[in-house]
């Protein structure tokens, strides 16, 4: 199943890039992450609680982050396995923009395997979009927190990303995108 989208982050491109390669930030921003451990250059072992509504499962797997063109293009590869099956995603992130704002365009493919493959595929695209939305919303909040820290000179306080909190942020960003003229 192919997915694609764009998200705006109010920060410079280089800064957004730095956030994306920071394991701590990844851990905080990736929805449902319980554990994230760096096991190699840009490779992380991860334990996630993934799901939507009543459908939830625990997945163990690996995230690979591979800068293709540092500062602009990055490949992502995620695979998680749980008793419900396998969740697999591959994609490319492209960062565009100068100065104040960065637009992150993503495109990729998500797949389900094993027991969940047939019953889950009907929800796959919506769920993947929702989770991607949560990730980028969290990332934007991280960027905002850094900016705030710079402006105020206060120490950096990483934001908290509850699923609902992220979700509201995500909705807000959508609203701004649609009606924000």
């Amino acid at each position: 199943m192919k997915i694609a989208g764009k998200h705006a982050v109010a920060a410079e491109r280089q800064e957004v890039w730095q956030l994306l390669v920071d394991p701590e930030v990844l851990r905080r921003c990736t929805p449902g992450v319980e554990e994230l451990r760096e096991v190699g250059d840009g490779e992380y072992d991860v334990v996630m609680q993934l799901g939507v509504g009543a459908v939830r499962g625990r997945y163990e797997g690996r995230i690979k982050v591979k800068p293709e063109e540092p500062g602009t293009t990055m490949r992502l590869d995620v695979e998680g396995r749980g008793s419900q099956g396998i969740v697999r995603g591959k994609g490319v992130l492209r960062l565009e923009g100068e100065n104040e704002g960065t637009e992150i365009a993503y495109e990729g493919e998500v797949q389900l395997g094993g027991p969940i493959a047939s019953v889950g595929q009907r929800m796959l695209q919506s769920t993947a979009r929702m989770l991607a939305g949560q990730f980028f919303t969290a990332l934007a909040a991280e960027a905002a927190a850094r900016q705030r820290a710079r402006v105020t000179g206060q120490p950096l306080r990483p934001p908290k990303h509850g699923i609902l909190r992220n979700f509201i942020r995500f909705l807000w960003s959508l609203l701004k995108r649609w009606f924000g003229r």
Binding site: A54, V55, G57, Q84, P115, V119
Partner: peptide, 21 residues
């Protein structure tokens, strides 16, 4: 916890272990 009403969605999810509340 999950709330059970008529069970037409929750029971299949439970049986498939897609929900394990």
């Amino acid at each position: 916890a999950k709330v059970l009403a008529g069970g037409q969605s929750l029971l299949p999810l439970l049986k498939l272990r897609l929900a394990s509340p």
